[in-house]
Design a binder for these strands. Structure first.
Lengths: 248, 248
DNA sequence: CGTTACCTTGAATCTCCTCAATACACGTGG
DNA sequence: CCACGTGTATTGAGGAGATTCAAGGTAACG
């Protein structure tokens, strides 16, 4: 499933460092990041990158591709708890707590940067700023999870769909994977259903209605927001996504 | 609303340090904590301790009392995103991100320990272990939020109630506020409704059914689990709550 | 050209919501 | 002491919204 280094790019040269959505690192931080990286890995679409309940010897940074974080009940019901975009860190929870409490599944083919868990422990001591960044990332994820929970608990099906569309576009924009007004992302309506907490059939009917009234279009893997103001009328603004963010 | 110091207890002598659910602090960490504390504050039941969208000059640790973290939509719909027990830290998000993304409301009268936000910034540098603890706390909250989200997205009303009961008891047990099998906590059925994401009326009917079949009892502020195994049959085990936890 | 994955639609059923009315405990002021 | 308001719990009825089951359609792929 995993394979050896693929890009071999060193951390100071990593394309993410050039992107304005990340905070700039100091030379010593870049040096640390370079020793932090222990290799690369890739996963095919549909494969589990991390499994619920397991421990891993590394933390991973997503170089390219999309993934979902999910939790399941014994009987198979699945809840998607977040989406993973290029530049995101995964597996942090497994380093801080006892194990992973959610799984991570590749939505597309995914290329990962492997980061040493051992080095991770030294980080707070050697570079407190990076240690702070870890807390920042966790707090950011917190804000999104709470907003997802607000959505799941209080909004109707159409509102949840409108909200999800907004989040995906905003995250994609920040990650630099939004081409003009088009988001190309291999999500299915089943993913939507598992995110908003409704059945596939009902999700389909609500999506159809939103498409019909011209809020957004969705053909194949291509999503386009047709009427941003109509979308905001349904959902209200989203506020949980922040930038600039730490590099990691 | 807030008032001057009430207990005046110094941090090395704080009762929480003696509790087994917290990790032990080193002498230098206790010294830091002592300089970290800048006073106390108390809030009456029903008052907002922290307001959604605002910034605060301090972080707070709960010495006694209960509270809820919540988010609201423009039209007033409210989602409780977590419960706050004695020993918990609140306002961390406001220090790490731009502002508070949820409100915190006192469920009972609450006594707080005020911690300097300025000192907080130095923490990673001076005592990396405490910096790590902050990340741990954020990761722990993440795990709970994700489990709440799983519940809200996938479980039926009765399952969500059973889950919530389990979480409240487990949190109370760890916080040391569970007296025998009885949890004394000023929650209403409306709080339950706002947590699980169903209407008050429907929540009431499902609670009534669970009480009738002998799963738990609820009179006034006193909750008792009558049949733990029946409860687990409905929900499955919960896994997101960890101990020992960092002191903070 | 058949298989697979995903999207779409209709019908019957059930869960959950809203509205509305009642009941009870509590504290407050007359 | 009682009358009253307030906050919380309870119950019934009718309707909206969501679920399940089932069938069919389309596009991509070997």
């Amino acid at each position: 499933m995993a394979s050896p280094a693929v890009t071999g790019v060193k951390c100071g040269e990593c394309k993410f460092q050039a992107m304005k959505c990340f905070r700039k690192l100091t030379p010593s931080e870049i040096a640390f990041m370079r020793s932090f990286k222990v290799g690369e890995a890739q996963f095919k679409r549909g494969k589990d990158i991390l499994r619920e309940g397991e421990k891993y010897p590394e933390i991973y940074s997503v170089l390219s591709g999309f993934a979902i974080k999910y939790k399941t009940l014994e009987d198979g019901r699945r809840q998607i708890v977040n989406y993973v975009f290029p530049g995101d860190l995964i597996g942090l929870q497994g380093s801080l707590l006892d194990k992973m409490h959610h799984g991570v599944e590749a939505l597309s083919d995914v290329l990962l940067c492997k980061l040493s868990k051992k080095k991770f422990w030294d980080m707070n001591r050697e570079l407190p700023e990076l240690g702070y960044d870890v807390s920042w990332l966790a707090a950011q994820e917190n804000a999104i999870l709470a907003e997802f929970l607000l959505s799941a608990g209080q909004r109707s099906a159409s509102e949840r769909i409108a909200y999800l569309i907004q989040v995906l576009f905003e995250r994609a924009r920040i990650a630099g994977v939004l081409k003009g007004k088009t988001l190309t992302m291999p999500v299915t309506q089943e993913h939507f259903a598992d995110t908003i907490g409704f059945s596939l059939v009902h999700t389909n009917k609500c999506i159809a209605r939103l498409k019909r009234i011209g809020v957004f279009s969705w053909k194949g893997n291509e999503l386009v927001i047709q009427d941003p103001s109509k979308l905001q009328d349904i959902t209200g603004p989203i506020t949980a996504i922040h930038t600039p963010r730490p590099f990691l």
